[in-house]
Design a protein around this nucleic acid. Structure first.
Lengths: 222, 222
DNA sequence: CCGGCCGGTAACTAAACGGTTACTTGATGA
DNA sequence: TCATCAAGTAACCGTTTAGTTACCGGCCGG
């Protein structure tokens, strides 16, 4: 064996940058960086190298903590859902009058979407792939039932006191609120371009916020 | 030069498959294949080889007719917009009563979205990239004004005859209709997964169609 | 006080990618 | 009838990509 029992040797220099040696922090940094990268470029456009660089680490760690690109993406998606559903729980929409409760949920949803456009991007990417990864998730089966249960109670109370129509349906109400927020924010770039009006302008955002509450309530009021 | 003036030579065999030699047809086939590929995989996920194969041709023709991947994508996007706006023009929503006109526009938009999910996908991809390519389009500046003009007239008539509220705004009305259709269809996969209900089921689709008309009209009725 | 383990780095690889080159074939009009 | 050119094919190329391997070093339990 031509004079060498050694395997290929790679030259090493001592690490110059400060070593972190903090697994929790590294993991969190990767997750945050991945959220941004996947939200900006989608599953197909996201680059593993870019995630590692954004997180201030390297690919080896990413594969160490999350397995591969697809599992990392699923983690990001799950974390995003946990984020909104957790914040939603703290609303307690049943504490006020039914009408105020619905208005509160609409305002919360709109403002959350506005503050977390990366969540909307991730939903868009996941739907492009027909929920291929979300359907594999085991963490998310029980997460969303709380919202529907609480919304059902609010609508029941509203119907009983005669302020809401009989046909008011919890899923329909939530989908209405989410539709009006999601479309406006996620499609703002093409809409602003084709209609020649900047939808991200503060005055327009405020007007749409009021519009969402108005549309939602007027569709269920007796 | 070691015994050869020739450049690298490639072996050729006679073409076995039927030659089309039909530029129009080839161009159209590439455009259709590209629409599917971009809609299914987004800009980042779409593969040039896959488009060529789907079109029954090869990459050389694709680059010959469309320049590069980005220009092909822009052509696909422009064609998609031309498609919906052209169909929309033939509605003539001003021909009936204002209320029927709005209902007609809502029904048309919903059914068009339902029939052309690839259009919704393309919008999603384009917005992910903040309308990067659409903003470069020179064909699409005048395309959308007709819709707003006709909608303005219908709302004016409705206001004048007292059936619509004074604050009814044409862009808001269109965005409401589009929101409710877009979100339901484009996000059907994640929504069906998390809420455990198949939104693509015919009964649910019919119910949502009625819901869109109801929500749109109830939000502007006097 | 030291050996192994875990957190960490960077160079490497095979495959896939967008885009190009070299060449062939059929139609057409001078 | 043949020169010319557009239509078409497939091999090729340089780069990028997801994923791996080889190696380093601080720290903690025995």
């Amino acid at each position: 064996m031509d004079g060498s029992g050694e395997k290929k040797t790679i030259k090493r220099r001592p690490a110059e940058r400060v070593l972190q040696r903090d697994p929790e922090r590294t993991r969190a940094a990767i997750l945050e960086a991945a959220t941004k990268e996947f939200a900006e470029n989608g599953m197909g456009g996201a680059r593993v190298d870019a995630i590692a660089e954004r997180a201030g680490t390297n690919k080896r760690m990413l594969y160490h903590y999350f397995g591969d690109k697809e599992q990392l993406y699923l983690h990001v998606l799950e974390e995003a859902y946990v984020g909104i559903r957790t914040a939603e729980r703290e609303l307690h929409i049943g504490d006020r009058s039914p009408e105020e409760g619905i208005a509160e949920l609409a305002l919360f949803t709109w403002r959350y979407f506005l503050k977390h456009p990366e969540f909307l991007s991730l939903l868009g990417t996941e739907n492009l792939h027909r929920a291929r990864w979300l359907r594999q998730s085991v963490r998310l089966k029980e997460l969303h039932s709380h919202l529907i249960i609480e919304l059902t109670q609010v609508l029941d109370r509203g119907r009983a006191s005669g302020v809401f129509i009989e046909t008011a349906d919890p899923l329909n109400v939530y989908l209405t609120i989410a539709s009006l927020g999601y479309f406006y924010i996620s499609n703002q770039y093409t809409l602003s371009t084709i209609f020649g009006r900047d939808l991200a302008d503060t005055a327009n955002l405020d007007a749409w916020e009021r519009h969402i509450v108005h549309v939602t309530l007027s569709s269920i009021k007796a």
